[in-house]
Structure formats: C-alpha cells, structure tokens
C-alpha cells in the first residue's frame, strides 16, 4: 500500500476522514529503507528472543523450530537485534546493489 492510496475523491473519503481498517499500515513495506539486514547464525542462536522483543519494527517472529526470523518486508536494518544478541549470533550484512 503506497501513499497513492490516499488519492481518492472527497465523495469517497471515509466518514470523518477516519481510518476504518485497523492495522493496515502492515501493507506498507518499510523494508526498502534498509541498507543492511540481519543474518542469524542458528549454530549460535539460543532462541532467547532478545532480537524479537527489542525490534522497533515488529519484524521478528518465531519459527516452528523456535528460532526468530526477521521479516524483510518490515526490517529497516537498524541493527538493534545484532547489537543486543547475547550470543553475537546475528550479523548485519550490507544490501547488495
């Protein structure tokens, strides 16, 4: 969902200019702000979830095996996860291109 979705006529504008669909910012991909992304070394990972709780962008979620994985559609590449990882299991890798 891009800002162009705001391009609607006054007659179709929602009542009161309210946003009726909760949490629809999730359609907006902040991942392309990124210049680096986290890569987790599962050998070192202890599944403590620090990366998940300290992520300002709600990018991390837990996999079935209990590891935490960052959703690249949201990860802005801030590097908090790598910095806070108690086992130094996360490395920030520059984006290519």
């Amino acid at each position: 969902m891009a800002i162009s979705d705001a391009i609607i006529g006054w007659k179709t504008l929602p009542f009161g200019c309210h946003v009726m669909e909760p949490g629809n910012s999730a359609k907006f991909r902040t991942g392309d702000w990124r210049s680096q992304h986290p890569v987790t070394d599962r050998e070192k990972c202890i599944k403590c979830g620090m990366c998940w709780i300290f992520c300002p962008d709600m990018a991390y979620s837990q996999t079935l095996e209990g590891y935490y994985e960052a959703n690249m559609e949201y990860c802005k590449g801030c590097g908090i996860c790598a910095h806070e990882c108690p086992k130094d299991a996360i490395t920030m890798v520059p984006e290519e291109g």
């Binding site: 391009i7 006054w10 504008l13 009161g16 309210h18 946003v19 009726m20 909760p22």
Partner: peptide, 27 residues
C-alpha cells in the same frame, strides 16, 4: 455512525497528507 469501540477499532484524526487534505476539507 462511528465510535471508539474495542470491538470495531477505528483510527480517528490521522495525518492529512497533501494527497488528502483538500478532499477532507471539501468533504
């Protein structure tokens, strides 16, 4: 017509970006 209700969450008073401000005032 709309009210603040946990059963049907709505966001009131969002930012009127330039693409929508004129339309909001017009409406």
């Amino acid at each position: 017509r709309v009210r603040l209700d946990v059963k049907k969450p709505v966001s009131m008073g969002p930012v009127g970006v330039p693409e929508v401000y004129t339309e909001a005032k017009m409406a």
